[in-house]
Amino acid sequence: MIDISILDVFPVLLKGVSVTIQVLVLSAIFSYLIAFIAGFGRLSKNVLVRKFTGFYIEIFRGTSLIVQLFWFYYAIPMLFNVQVGSELMAGVLAISLNYGAYMSEIVRGSIIAVDKGQREAATALNMTRFQQMRLVILPQAVRMMLPEFGNYLIQILKATSLVSLIGMTDILYHGNMLRSTNIAMAPTIYLLILVFYFILALPLIFLTRKAEDISKKGVASS
């Protein structure tokens, strides 16, 4: 007798929420971090640094996230004969390096997009290069980055579902488990999973809209 309902599916999926959020938060933090490092790397005066960062970005943007994830999880331990990779580490590493590469282009683009006159005015006030970046360029560039950063947060949330494929017990993993024993419940299970993700995405959607508002104000329009 198949007598499971939404009320039975719900608590099962709920067990995975904390893992999903954990992967989301860690990946987001590292993605942003990498985005800034690589974004500045691409703007470096040192050719070697610039080329190297460019190489990293092309590699990670040129391949598929799911391939990168499997590569980190299955191939790296074999390549170096070490078992560094916990699932969490492989998952967060793959997602962060992938989205860090994409977002580094936003960091770079925003810094370049700050009006040239801003840097000149800062020079005329005798600021050091570091002060120019910290006090004048970055505050404006970050405002420009915000909406895209918000968009990518939603992308990262969606990407976290991949970690179920390397055995992390996130929302999708629990859903898949339940489906494998109750195939008839598949519609309820997957619809509910989608709703779970959507509810997690909602605050991010509103955050992104808010970011768009902030971004519209307070940027130089010479």
Partner: peptide, 11 residues
């Protein structure tokens, strides 16, 4: 747009 394509695929 804001839910994972992987889950949509499974669905």
């Amino acid at each position: 747009r804001s839910t994972p394509p992987l889950v949509q695929l499974f669905f």
